[in-house]
Structure formats: C-alpha cells, structure tokens
Amino acid sequence: MPAFEKKLTDWLKKHLDLLFVLAVAALGLALRYPLHSLHAAVPGGQGSVAAIFADLLPAAAGAWLLHSIGEKQWKCTLAFALLFLSPAAIFSSAVYGSFEAVTVGLCIGSFLLLREKKHVPAFVLYALACMSGFYAWLFLPAFLFCYLYEERFSLLLFALPGAGSLLRVLAENAGFRLRGGYLPEGLAGGKLYVDCASFWAFLKGNEELLFRRYLPLAWVLPAALVAAWIFLFCRKNRKYDEEDLLLAVFPLVQLAAYFLPGADSLSAICISVPAWILALIRPQLIPVALLLDLSGVIPMAGAIYGAEWMPVSLQAQSWIRAAALAAEVCLCLKRKKKA
C-alpha cells in the first residue's frame, strides 16, 4: 500500500467515530430537508425548516450521557446515529417542524449535569427545557427520584423549572406566542389524547365528556405509578451505579409519557429517545426500542394521511406500546449477574 494511502487509512481509523458522526449528521440533515414541505399538511404542525437541526441536540446529549457513565466509545457514536436517525425524531422535526427534540435534549443535558453533582446548572438547564416545551415535565419523575435517592440538593431548586414554565405561559398570554402553544394539543383542546397511542386511546366516545369525567383519574394513575416506582426502587438500602440509575429512571419518563392525559403525537419523542439510550445499555432492548419508536411514528403519519392509512388501529398501537414498555421495565430491572 502506498505510504500516503497508509497514512490516510490510519487517519481514518483514528478518527472513525468523528467521521461517522459527521457523515450521519450530514446525511440525516439532507434526508430531513425534503420532508419539511409536508408541514402544510400536518394538522397542528409547526412548520419550521430550522427544526431539522433540532434533533442534533438530543443525539449529542444522549451520546454524551452514555460516555459519562463509562460506555464504550463506539456505543456513544452509535447512540448519536440512532437518536438522530430515529423515525420518531425525523417525523417530529422534519415533518411536523416541531422543536420537541430541543426540549428533550435540554432535559437529558440537565440530567447529565445532575449526575455530575452540578445541581444548580442542572436545574437552570431544566428550567430552560421547561420553558421550551411542556413535555420537559415528563422528566420531573426522574429528577424527583434522584432527589429522594441522593438527598444532596434542595427541593427549592424545583422552583426553577416552575419559574421557567410560568414565564413561558405569561409570555404567551402577553402575545409572545412561539410556534405551537405551550400545552399539548389534548390538554389545550379538552381531549384525553390526540393522534397518540397513549393509554387513554382505549377510551372512545364523546371527547368532551370523556375529558371531563376521566381527567382526574388520568392524572391520578400516572402519579400513582410514579409514586409506586419511587416507593419500590428508591429505598434506603438500595444502591445504584450510574448505569443502573439510568435503567431505573428512564422508564419512569416513558411511563409518564404513556399515561399523560391530553398528550399528542409529539410526545412520542419522550418515549423513543430514552428507549434508544436504554437499548445501548441493554442490547436486549433493541426490538423494544424499535417497537416504541414505530408506535410513535404511525400515529403521526396517520394524522397526515388519515386513520385508514394506519396498518393497525390507535388502540392496537396503544396496546403494543404497553406490552413493549412492560417488557422494557422487566429487562431494565433485571439485576446484572454478579461477576
């Protein structure tokens, strides 16, 4: 092999991860761009070309998170690729033009800072996340878990994300409305779910009546689930290493997203991003992550092309999601065999 070629291949091998990431980023952006013309067809779509860059944030944050818990370099690189090329992420940003990916990216970043014991910066970032999108509140159970488990930082820090949300709401009331309202479509419009394979998709009927009757229960159930989870896994004598903590905490975010009343299709990203991160820690979760991702995409596509287009009904998808989440919970909580 000629010398320059040898040098080139050596350089490529040395910087393989970086080159792969750049290639994925470039191709990922390129494949998103043509899809932005679908914005007009999307009911409630936010329609911003800039949103195609939004997915870079959760992809980078997810990769960084895995790196911080000591995962191998190639896994971190793969995380970036999976998170950036996930169908749910592409639909959310490219087709819907939404910035939910920014919200999720900021949440993951703030969680990472929390684990690095930088509590105030973590909550400042989380406050920014809450200001950018309502779905940041789905990460609240994760922060609560860490608060009760670590006993290192004050409850007063939770006022910061509260303030962030309040600022956003006040700004909207004052007329400074960002693309898309703050509240999910369902909560704003008095519906238990909107084009979303959430748990509440099983309830079909007069939407206004269902919302009025079942909303309190719809809040009680996820709250009870979170309470039960913390009750079961946040005990005095239970110790977690960094990897185990992610496995204990991220399913909580997904469960909150699945049971959230009033959720719309954009909540899918709060389920798929943690799913892919967990799949890289426990490879048995890869099929589960795929199922969860697709169960988020199909309703989004159904909203554009009509419910008849969907290969399975929303209720069936909700069911599939429930089974996938249950399998994920079982696999995440399975203790590693001691060496």
Binding site: R213, Y214, P216, L217, V220, A223, A224, A227, F231
Partner: peptide
Amino acid sequence: FLLFVTLGGILGRIFLWD
C-alpha cells in the same frame, strides 16, 4: 404510599359517579 393511593383512587372515582 397507601394514603396517597387511597386519596388518589377516591378522587378518580368521584368524577365518574354521575
């Protein structure tokens, strides 16, 4: 936990009583 669940369950039911 038991208290939380009981109160939550009662709240969730009341709105269905009509």
